[in-house]
């Protein structure tokens, strides 16, 4: 290991923590006996929004965080710019 990479080395524990948080948020939906809750929510939210605005499948982000006190559901929908605005 060069001296430079030694000093640039990022600590690995935060990476572990982040990977686990992402993975477990996904797995908890599946293992709870129900089908993937997050995926299901994503589909249904998308269907409702599409009645009014056309959004792409990839532009809907649904995240769920479980905690001992509160759980949060984070939904982010990217709405396309009105037609002509970008032209």
């Amino acid at each position: 290991m060069s001296l430079l990479s030694f000093f640039n080395r990022r600590t690995s524990a935060p990476v572990a923590r982040e990977r686990l948080q992402i993975l477990l948020a996904h797995e908890r939906g599946i293992v709870g006996g129900k089908p993937d809750l997050v995926a299901q929510l994503r589909e249904e939210i998308l269907a409702v929004v599409r009645r009014h605005v056309m959004v792409e499948q990839d532009n809907v982000q649904v995240k769920m965080n479980r905690d001992s006190d509160i759980s949060t559901l984070e939904i982010e929908i990217e709405i396309p710019a009105p037609a002509g605005a970008t032209a």
Partner: peptide
């Protein structure tokens, strides 16, 4: 040192 998950994590 950030090499292991902490108790809080």
């Amino acid at each position: 040192r950030g090499e292991m998950l902490k108790v809080e994590d």
